Amino acid sequence: MSIDLPPYAKAVFKYGRPIVLLTALLMSIPGEIHLAEVAGWDSVTIWDWTFNVAALMPVCVSVYAACSAVIADVSKRLKLPNRRSALAGAVAALGLALAAQDVSHLIEQDYMGTSWLLVGAVSAIPPLVAFHMLHMAAAPESTASVVEVDEPEDEFEAGDDESDKPRRRRGRPGLTEEEVQAAIACLNADGREVNPANLGEVLNRAPRTARRYLERQAKVAEKSVGQPADGMLPLAI
């Protein structure tokens, strides 16, 4: 469905969100750096380069919260195995970012002072963030940044028999039988093996979607000539 937004709405949608996100992250930096300094982080010297380690705290708090929110949203949309961990991490990161800002400003305005509990809690932030990110990276292969998703689409209709017609589902427009046959002929002409991976590459479809097209073509060939079409079987699936 296409929605024709007015120009100002398009500008807000396209530019407003990243500007607000960047502004919020920038405004969070001073409080998080201050909280790290209260916990005892100081400058370190590596060779002749002096660096304020406390300046990295915003990455462990606000940037981590933003990353966790994106990971949780993608995991939920694609129903990945790590979606519960990602959601828990996003909620914890949001709570951490809120608490860091509140505590930092309360200390800055002399409403509260530091304590061993506060120092211990702030000191635990970097290792906990690192642990969660490593946990996400070590998740199953299906949670990688590129995920093979079985694409819902309308497949081509092979014949007049209603039993041969695939059930229609909403999704990407299906390919015609001629398009699939042309792609198979292209693979044969190039001397490439006709398998789901190669056919999916030519058709710009996922391998599992290409597998269905191959199985459908094989059934069509068997019904039309009584034997598999040249270049179709045996399939390397």
Rank of each mutant, 00 (worst) to 15 (best):
K165V: 14
Q181M: 14
Q181N: 05
G191N: 04
R168N: 04
D190Q: 15
E215W: 15
S163A: 13
K165W: 08
D190S: 09
A158C: 14
L199W: 08
A158L: 13
A189G: 07
L214W: 02
D161E: 02
N198M: 09
P166R: 10
A185H: 05
R172S: 06
E179I: 08
Q181W: 12
K165D: 04
E155R: 09
A185K: 05
D190L: 14
V147H: 01
S163Y: 10
G171K: 12
D150T: 10
R205P: 13
P152L: 09
V149W: 02
N198F: 09
R170L: 12
E162L: 12
E177W: 10
E179T: 05
P196I: 14
V194E: 00
D190G: 15
L199Y: 04
E153S: 03
N204Q: 06
E157D: 08
C186T: 10
T209Q: 07
D161S: 04
V147K: 02
G171I: 13
A185Q: 03
E151T: 09
Q181R: 05
N195Y: 00
R208S: 13
I184N: 00
D190V: 13
G171Q: 06
E151Y: 02
R208E: 04
E162Y: 14
A206C: 11
Y213L: 03
C186N: 09
D161N: 07
A158S: 10
Y213S: 00
R172Q: 06
N198Y: 11
E179Q: 13
E178I: 15
V194Y: 08
G159C: 05
E162H: 07
A197R: 14
A210E: 00
V149N: 05
A158V: 14
R192I: 00
V147I: 04
R192V: 01
E178W: 07
G174F: 07
P196E: 00
P196H: 11
E201Q: 07
